[in-house]
Computed example of a mutant assay.
Amino acid sequence: MHDIWNPWHGCVKCSEGCQHCYMYFLDRLRHRNGTDIFKTKAGFNYPLQKNRNGSYKIQSGELIRVCMTSDFFLEEADGWRAEAWEIMRQRPDVKFFLLTKRPQRVAECLPKDWGDGWENIMFNVTCENQRRADERIPILLDLPFKHKGIMCAPFIGAVSIEKYLAAGQIEQVICGGENYDGARPCDFDWVKTLQAECVTHNITFCFIETGTFFIKDRKRYYIPKKQVQSEMAFKSGMNYKGRPIDWKLTDRFGTQIHKENLYIAHYRKNCGKCGSRLICNGCSDCGRCREHSIY
């Protein structure tokens, strides 16, 4: 996917949300071991890669999700992180989405010149249940980042975060059910409660997918196809666009880039009912939808 940058792969399980990790499941399908942690070769410098015409493959203004098959603050990646930070430093025109289950390690892993944060970095913590929300969000609020968000995925237990949203630092909340081996159910009542708290504080809320097992009105539904999960999440009407995020993106000389010169996401026919559209980086023009006759 064009909006994902995996500078390293593999991880160590550390909490309840890791129990049925999708990365471990997909690695098993490829006869790999998810505990094997390694620096990627072709993909490590992805944000700096260029097209034949000399332009960056990732355009100014795009949002890139980092370490979706690992954790950016994983201890085993300490030897590679400085180089990854340097890559992000060289692309102040690109938005980088960082997500971790290890916020307690973040302060010691920041660049020396970090100050109160970089304008192009959004830092998110995973809060799969109330225990982890109460453990991780206070750390999140104390850390120096310009942009902060919360990810309740896999959503495996009721979560209330209103007392944290009141601090005014959280700009985005995402939630989604669990998939693949051993998926635990996601209850729609949890989603509605979380969404209502975000609406109260005018914070963007995105319900990206139901998960394999979804409970609504005390009925349990089996939804094995992720595309259907996403469509059901969209049709629920839970997605809410709150106050806009004020990104201050610059060129490498520090000059702010005008909005008209930034990437504008575009979508295809099959994107119309996608639960992730509210936070999506848009179509990559890979052509797969034409192959499946849904263009």
Results as ranks from 00 to 15, higher is better:
Y222P: 03
G17H: 07
D217P: 05
L141P: 04
Q172T: 02
S55R: 09
M238Q: 12
K57E: 03
K50S: 06
V199L: 10
K226R: 14
R102G: 02
V191M: 03
P185V: 07
F97H: 04
I137F: 09
R132Y: 15
Q169W: 07
R105A: 10
F96T: 00
Q90E: 03
T40M: 01
R131E: 15
I245P: 11
F44A: 01
C274K: 11
R268F: 04
S284E: 06
N202Y: 04
H266M: 03
M122R: 15
C21Q: 08
N281L: 02
L74W: 00
K225C: 08
W247R: 13
L29C: 11
S276G: 05
F145G: 09
G176T: 12
D36I: 14
F207S: 01
L74N: 01
G157T: 05
K226T: 13
F213A: 05
E197I: 01
A82L: 02
K241N: 08
D134I: 07
H292R: 10
L63V: 03
A42Y: 12
S60N: 09
C186Y: 15
G211L: 03
A196V: 00
D285Q: 13
N124K: 11
C283F: 06
T204D: 09
H266N: 11
R102T: 04
K235H: 14
D134F: 05
N51K: 15
T100L: 02
D116Q: 13
A158W: 13
Q130Y: 13
N51E: 13
H9F: 14
E162Y: 11
Q256R: 15
M151Y: 08
V66D: 02
Y222W: 12
D36F: 14
I58E: 02
P7D: 06
V159A: 05
C21R: 08
F253P: 00
C18G: 10
V228T: 15
S60E: 07
D93H: 03
C11F: 07
K39E: 13
H9N: 09
H9S: 12
R268T: 11
L143A: 05
E86K: 05
S60Q: 08
V228G: 04
N124G: 05
P92E: 00
A133L: 06
Y180W: 07
H9R: 12
K39W: 12
C18E: 08
H2Y: 12
L99C: 02
L74E: 05
A77S: 03
K259G: 08
G10D: 09
A84K: 00
Y222V: 06
N124C: 15
E83M: 00
K235C: 11
R102N: 04
P224K: 04
E171L: 10
C274T: 10
F253H: 13
F123A: 06
L110R: 06
E291A: 05
T193G: 15
I257Q: 12
R132K: 12
H147F: 10
S55F: 04
N33C: 09
D246K: 14
M238E: 13
D113K: 03
P138F: 15
E171P: 04
H9E: 11
G275V: 06
T255I: 10
E86V: 04
I203R: 07
F96Q: 00
R277Q: 13
D71R: 00
G242D: 07
K101P: 01
L165M: 10
E16L: 10
E86L: 02
Q229R: 11
